[in-house]
Amino acid sequence: MRRNLLSVLERYHLIMMSAVLLFIIFVSICVGRFQISPVEVLKIIASKFFSLETGATVMMEQVVWEVRLPRIIAGMIVGGGLAISGASFQGLFRNPLVSPDILGVSAGAGFGAALALLLNFTGITVAVFAFGCGLIAVSLVYGITRLHKSTPTLIFVLSGIIVSAFFTSLISLTKYIADPYDKLPAIVFWLMGSISAVTYKMIWITMPLIVIASAVLLLLRWRLNVLSLGDREARSLGINIRKLRLIVVVCTTIITAAAVCLGGTIGWIGLVTPHLGRIMVGPNHSRLLPVSFLLGASFLLIIDNIARTLTATEIPLGILTGIVGAPFFTYLILRHKVKWL
């Protein structure tokens, strides 16, 4: 019975999971402190396309279009982007415990944002600082690996850990010297992750980056399969691993840095959702990458819905993903006897 269910899942997985995501999007529009019934939401959406008397107040329309929708779009591209990066990195590094920030992009971006906040910048400037420092961190990692003669993949992971540790210390330093009444809370909140203050402007800047880089990773789906066999075998199958590795690293870095700009440092999604994807459709990246994207998007939307409804004040996403993610991951490992760990 379960076998059958799994094989159906495997065949129609994209359609089914897109449907699930659509449903979650719809629920996310309805959910929130400001009550709007599902029927009214449907009417408000329909009125965009047909001339229709909705009876909805201006307030309702504003909540749907200006507050909830940008937040939902941000949640989707952040969650989906982190998940597809995680899946690609796990394949590239042949290690299922790798997450997209393994090469230091999150630590770098976190430091960039903290520094910008410390220097009294706000809004887009903070995002630019975060993005820039994320790229610098990964470039440093890449530079370190170039010093090594044969650059086996493991050197990347090691250099990533080194650079991450360095930038994490710098983050602590900025926190230490930040004004504890004003700037320190801002830095801490930023680092814990949230998509509550997302604007359309931010979305229009980051979405193309995430979409294009994700598309490139999707196109490389078969090469990622071969890369996950190991460096030497990939080369014996005619793959230029240096070049391919660089492309994958650049794409995941752009996605992760853009995601961090939008939502702060949100952990777990890039690590956990690829595993869930593998359980559902197997390890072949042709199926795993799109499924991971859909799963990551769905997961973050659900988490964000919890974040804004559970308590009177919003709970930062970075906290919730861990609290929900850890037991969920434990369940997956025990329930399905995950074989690649």
């Binding site: 299922p96 996950s228 075998e233 197997g282 390890p283 072949n284």
Partner: peptide, 10 residues
């Protein structure tokens, strides 16, 4: 190669 160490269950 002499042996192959699989990671993912292809």
């Amino acid at each position: 190669p002499q042996s192959h160490l699989p990671t993912f269950p292809y």
